Amino acid sequence: MTPSSPAHANRSDVVRQVAVVAATCLMIAAAMVGAGLFGGTPVQDLQGGALDVDGSYLAPARPAFSIWSAIYIGLVAYAAWQALPQQRADVRQRAMGWWVAASEVLNGLWLLAAQFADLPTTVAVIFALAGVLALAFHRAVRTAREGLLPALLIDGVTGLHLGWVTIAAVANTAAWLTRTAPEEWADAAAVAGVVALAVIAIIAVGIGWRGRGRLAPALALAWGLSWLAVARLSGEPASTAIGVTAAAVAVIALGATLAFRFSRRAAS
Rank of each mutant, 00 (worst) to 15 (best):
M1C: 12
A7G: 11
A7H: 13
R11D: 13
R16A: 15
A22C: 11
A23S: 09
T24L: 11
C25D: 12
I28C: 04
A30C: 09
A31N: 13
V33K: 00
G34H: 05
G40C: 05
P42N: 01
V43L: 14
Q47A: 14
Q47V: 05
Q47D: 02
A50K: 05
D54R: 09
S56N: 04
L58V: 04
A59C: 03
A59L: 00
A64W: 00
A64C: 02
I71N: 03
I73D: 02
L75G: 12
Q82R: 08
D90R: 14
A95M: 03
V100Q: 10
A101V: 00
A102P: 02
L106Y: 03
G108W: 05
W110Y: 07
W110M: 05
L111K: 08
F116V: 02
L119T: 03
L119N: 04
T122L: 03
L129S: 08
A130M: 12
V132H: 05
A140V: 13
T143E: 14
R145Q: 12
R145G: 15
P150G: 00
L153A: 00
L153M: 02
G156E: 07
G159H: 03
H161S: 10
L162Q: 04
W164H: 05
L177T: 10
T178E: 14
A181P: 00
A186S: 15
A186N: 11
A190E: 15
A192S: 12
V199S: 03
A204D: 03
V205N: 04
G206E: 09
I207W: 06
G208C: 00
G213F: 01
P217E: 11
L219P: 01
A220W: 12
A220R: 05
G224H: 00
A231K: 08
E236G: 04
A238H: 14
T240G: 10
V244E: 06
A246W: 02
A247N: 04
L254W: 09
L258G: 11
R261G: 08
S263D: 12
